[in-house]
Write a protein that binds this DNA or RNA. Structure first.
Lengths: 232, 232
DNA sequence: ACAAAAGTGTTATTCCTACACCCATGC
DNA sequence: GCATGGGTGTAGGAATAACACTTTTGT
């Protein structure tokens, strides 16, 4: 007779706010882990799969139109990961563009990943896994579209990459690499200069807003094909 | 009152046999999907997480010492993915070296991915996802260690890569790329030539037998650092 | 000697980093 | 004019694909 088991979904929703990678969490008011911060999510419904479920549950915390990308990270299934009845979690990474400022419930707030408050259960491990996934995919896919506004200057994009990756990025090379791979294209418009002057910056956009692998790792690709990521 | 739900684990165990990528499956004797081929796996036990569970269940089908790598692929959770009580599956990729020939139960057999018989439930999608994961990781990690014998010639390794990737691979460049990245090293021994003669081939081994990223995608790495995959 | 298989040398290309230099605006 | 920020040109270097050539064996 198996122990009763629930299935939940949890989302580490990441956004770059104030040049820092932050995660959305809500503060638990009830035990267990009262006062600690938890990821949004909840029980899987009877008539939905985990992808639909996480989208539905996020709708209660943030405006859905602002979540530009959602993907499965992993299953967290330690029998003792939460006290009481067994609960298995499918963890997701969610991304929100830097220019969005979704209204969130009163018990909910953004926290920099570098200064996380006490987290509930195993949610810190989920956040780490989500951050690692984001960093990896920023480098070999066009996933930046999910962090950036619809239009942006190269230096704004550079700051997003620096915040997400945690290491310096050259604006010069960022622009050239991403345009060569047809990930970025100029909109034709210019951004006004700041108060101190300076040349007005050109605005760019991502050519696609769905995930695509752009750097199909050089080593073992079929012979005779260039490296560009499948240009249609 | 939520619908009762079980959690199962399923493994797409892949091996290269006869220069072809094959998957281990067993033929169902009972409905539903009687006669169709299913992936090994089963219900998650009360005192184990999904990783331990898949290892335990594989022990019933193949000798565990032969499974050199296991990793989570994704959760499959469509409410109607199997008839009857709801069942959520965590899918895994498992790999067995080409020189192993594990004893398997009578209802169990290997099948080339290119000529799969009728599969049960959504298992074909799981097999596809596992194959895609294998192909991707072969290119940017040292995952080849899990497909290859402990020692091998470069041309044997080349055939493994061809079978797994499905496109031609140059033995010359394969050797140079993998040794430059310190993924491969010579054992110092030689393999005897075949019946038709020919120069005896040097034997190589993988320097590590745990997963490591060897090509940390060039674009956005920190400045001033070479591309080698974190050589210890 | 000749065929077969393995391995090395070499060249051309592609892609990237780094850095110097030029451009456009506010004050 | 000059400070400030944006963008381009270009040289050097690293990694790889392609292919010719050499080495070592069996018959």
């Amino acid at each position: 007779m198996p122990r009763p088991t629930e299935h939940e979904v949890l989302a580490a929703v990441l956004q770059i706010r104030d040049d820092t990678l932050q995660v959305l969490a809500w503060q638990r008011a009830q035990p267990p882990d009262s006062g600690r911060w938890a990821l949004p999510g909840g029980r899987l419904g009877d008539d939905e799969d985990v992808e639909r479920s996480v989208v539905r549950q996020l709708a209660e915390k943030v405006d859905l139109r602002e979540v530009t990308h959602v993907e499965q990270i992993a299953v967290f299934s330690d029998p003792d990961r939460v006290p009481g009845a067994r609960r298995i979690a499918t963890a997701f990474l969610g991304l929100v563009p830097a220019d969005a400022d979704p209204a969130v419930p009163a018990d909910t707030a953004w926290h920099p990943l570098t200064a996380l408050p006490a987290t509930a259960f195993d949610h810190a491990a989920i956040i780490d896994a989500a951050r690692d996934r984001l960093r990896a995919k920023l480098s070999y896919t066009n996933l930046g579209f999910a962090l950036a506004p619809r239009a942006f200057t190269i230096s704004a994009l550079r700051e997003l990459y620096v915040a997400a990756l945690g290491h310096p990025v050259s604006a010069t090379n960022l622009q050239r690499v991403l345009t060569r791979r047809h990930v970025l294209e100029p909109t034709g418009d210019l951004a006004p200069p700041g108060p101190a002057g300076g040349r007005p910056a050109a605005l760019f956009r991502f050519t696609e807003r769905t995930l695509r692998v752009t750097d199909a790792s050089a080593v073992l690709r079929p012979p005779g094909e260039p490296d560009r990521g499948a240009v249609p």
